[in-house]
């Protein structure tokens, strides 16, 4: 194996991931400022460098960056040691408790449930001394309420605030920062890089060869897509984007499909890898009607169980999020 590569540290990180079973999961560590750490045995600065390496590898599509958890953090010091609690809307005290109200229909009296004394057969109304026996018929619960034991205010919706146990800063709940924690999983490109002993450099953008139609890596394909969108917006030209979901993530099957695709593509059309089981096909100078026709012919001739549809892209919106939304349709 050629251990030399211009990224150095990333290959080490990649090997670390492989050694940890191919999926690096965060581990809970309360004293850590983030609450989680990916490298519990490492020094903080070393862990920080390795995390940088992981981020780079994920951006370069060698690793899949997966959502693991979300933390609320203090906007003042960044600590995750935030005590999120309900507080009085009037005096901000946390000394509050819920109170259930009862409304007696006959006399209109409303009061906390405990004031309607139970005598075994039902509750007694302190106002008219009538009996409350059937909820919904002679009385009901108008709603939950809270009462503050500090200022005696009554309110229905308590305020949510975070008290940082690290720096004692109080922050309204809607102003707390949120930090996402991710896990990192080795994907096929990462495996291929480990097998080759090196990362693929900038010039090698290809995943695999397919009879003149390469499959571009995701971040390269996204770049090509955004470039096409800019061109379409400037010159008013049409383009289409098709998402194809593979029945299996098997490379052999993918290769067969790409060969079949190549028979129906022009040399300006581009194929990209979106996820392990999804491909994207960019058709410049093709409107939606033309894309639909192409897709029907391709599916009819594919001879494989696959799903595909034309992506409806808004040129003004964020491409990545639009793709993420519409990928579930397939």
């Amino acid at each position: 194996m050629d251990t030399e590569n211009k990224y150095g540290e990333p290959m080490t990180v990649l090997q670390q991931v492989q050694q940890r079973g191919g999926h690096l999961l965060p581990q809970w560590q309360a004293e850590h400022i983030d609450g989680y750490t990916l490298f519990p045995q490492s020094e903080p600065d070393v862990a920080g460098q390795m995390l940088q390496g992981l981020e780079y590898l994920a951006s370069a599509d060698y690793l899949d960056k997966l959502f693991f958890d979300r933390l609320s953090v203090c906007p003042s010091c960044g600590s995750h040691h935030v005590n999120v609690r309900e507080a009085c809307s009037s005096c901000k005290s946390s000394h509050i408790s819920p109170v259930s109200l009862l409304h007696h229909f006959r006399c209109g009296y409303v009061a906390p449930a405990e004031t309607f004394v139970h005598n075994g057969k039902g509750r007694i109304c302190p106002k008219c001394h009538g009996h409350l026996t059937d909820l919904g018929t002679d009385h009901d619960i108008p709603g939950e309420n809270f009462t503050c034991h500090s200022c005696h205010a009554s309110f229905q919706v308590p305020e949510v605030e975070g008290l940082c146990m690290n720096c004692q800063t109080r922050t309204p709940g809607d102003q707390l920062l949120h930090k996402d924690i991710h896990s990192f999983r080795l994907n096929s490109l990462g495996m291929a890089a480990l097998s080759n002993g090196r990362l693929y450099d900038q010039e090698e953008e290809l995943l695999l060869e397919g009879d003149g139609h390469p499959i571009y890596r995701k971040h390269v394909f996204m770049f090509l897509l955004e470039d096409e969108m800019r061109r379409a917006k400037r010159y008013g030209t049409a383009f289409s984007l098709i998402m194809i979901k593979l029945a299996t993530a098997d490379d052999t099957e993918t290769e067969r499909l790409v060969f079949h695709m190549a028979e129906n593509l022009r040399n300006s059309d581009k194929i990209g890898r979106y996820t392990e089981d999804r491909l994207l096909l960019l058709l410049p100078a093709t409107d939606k009607a033309g894309a639909d026709i192409w897709l029907r012919r391709f599916i009819a001739g594919a001879g494989a169980a696959l799903q595909a549809h034309v992506i409806d892209l808004n040129q003004e919106g964020d491409v990545a999020s639009q793709l993420a939304e519409q990928s579930w349709n397939t």
Binding site: H103, G108, A111, P112, N145, A153, S154
Partner: peptide
Amino acid sequence: PGSLNIGLVMAR
């Protein structure tokens, strides 16, 4: 009347 009585419970 019922609504006003709810307000009466909450009033300080």
